[in-house]
Nucleic acid binder design. Structure first.
Length: 303
RNA sequence: GGAGGGGUAGCGAAGUGGUUAAACGCGGCUGACUGUAACUCAGCUCCCUACGGGUUCGGGGGUUCAAAUCCCUCCCCCUCCA
């Protein structure tokens, strides 16, 4: 039975803990799908599972690369699929945990990333207007899809089309967008948003106490703050502290705000991008019910 | 007690007689998202029975066809001198 169970949802909703409980109950391994926890140097910033949690169940996807190396969806996708295939072939079950939306989609669905040709391009030289027109010219259907101001996506779309030598819509149409495995997806959120906000704030304070500043300082010795891996929340914000332009207090407040905003983006993603069953973790009774239902589903070899 | 400066939407901050329901930034809300994704980007944000209407710029009063903008008065805050 190639069934997968996914525990996803907003940040600071207790995903890891829930995943460990479920995994233990059905002899599964855990695959973390977290675009920051995968960095060796950022366990605090990413609120990676504790060692004791990792002792209870075999974990994958955590601390698998250095910030120096960097990571991207395509690479993580192939890593993840390998882990899943191996586990399933050994008769293990797999519980995926994490809140990185795009990474999850790439694993769950048949997203296909062509080998990057790393071709040279001079798009960096062009202004947004020009990039946008160029993109529309190559693929008119992208007109309302990528906004002129979204320079990052504009360039990526253009580079992609150069690489695969076809329009982006042609490239996407080859994918069926169906789940690779039978999957139960649970998304965690709080019904009471104020309470959730409070939880997020508490967790940031906790990270500070655990030595977040030192962790980031060490990481920044390896790569600059402009490096992709350093754009994580709780990391990038320290750049201004180290350069002396903002206080530590201001930085902490900023990290909290960024965390709230991230949670909002996650909610939007899971609401529209994945077929999730929502679990409101402040409704205690339902947590148990959902957990049991999930375990039962995983352990049922029928279906 | 004396001399100045100031009170503008959730916050910061423009505006100093009409084109102002009030720039801009932040926050908040909603949304997009296929190789940076904890990224990047978009829309909305005084109230309502909302292609129209109602109330705003510390309080009250006044001048004016017309005021956040001018005058009077009261309240509060800050700086300096006593």
């Amino acid at each position: 039975m190639n069934k997968l169970c996914v525990i996803t949802g907003l940040t600071a909703t207790g995903k890891s803990k829930l995943a460990v409980e479920i995994a233990k109950a059905c002899d599964a391994i855990i695959l973390s799908v977290d675009s920051v926890a995968l960095y060796q140097e950022l366990p605090i910033a990413s609120a990676a599972p504790t060692l004791s949690e990792q002792d209870q169940v075999p974990h994958y996807g955590i601390g698998i690369v250095s910030v120096k190396e960097g990571m991207d969806v395509a690479r993580f996708q192939s890593y993840a699929l390998e882990v899943i295939e191996k586990a399933l072939s050994e008769g293990k079950k797999v519980v995926l945990v994490g809140g990185s939306g795009l990474y999850l989609n790439a694993i769950l669905y048949d997203y296909e990333f062509k080998a990057s040709t790393n071709i040279e391009h001079s798009y960096d030289q062009l202004d947004n207007e020009t990039l946008y027109n160029l993109m529309c010219q190559k693929d008119p259907s992208l007109k309302d899809h990528i906004h002129v101001n979204n320079r990052q996506r504009l360039i990526r779309a253009l580079v992609l089309m150069d690489e695969v030598n076809m329009s982006k819509s042609q490239h996407l149409s080859s994918q069926k967008k169906i789940l690779r495995y039978p999957t139960k997806i649970i998304a965690c959120d709080y019904k009471d948003r104020d309470l959730h906000r409070q939880k997020m704030n508490e967790r940031v304070d906790q990270m500070i106490n655990q030595g977040l500043m030192h962790e980031v300082e060490e990481a920044s010795k390896l790569v600059s703050f402009s490096h992709p891996a350093m754009s994580a929340i709780g990391v990038r914000q320290w750049a201004d502290v180290f350069s002396g332009s903002i206080s530590i207090e201001a930085c902490i407040a900023l990290i909290k705000t960024k965390t709230h905003q991230f949670a909002k983006r996650q909610r939007t993603w899971f609401k529209h991008q994945l077929p999730c069953e929502w679990l409101y973790v402040d409704e205690i009774e339902t947590i148990h019910k959902k957990k049991e239902a999930c375990i039962a589903w995983m352990n049922n070899s029928q279906e």
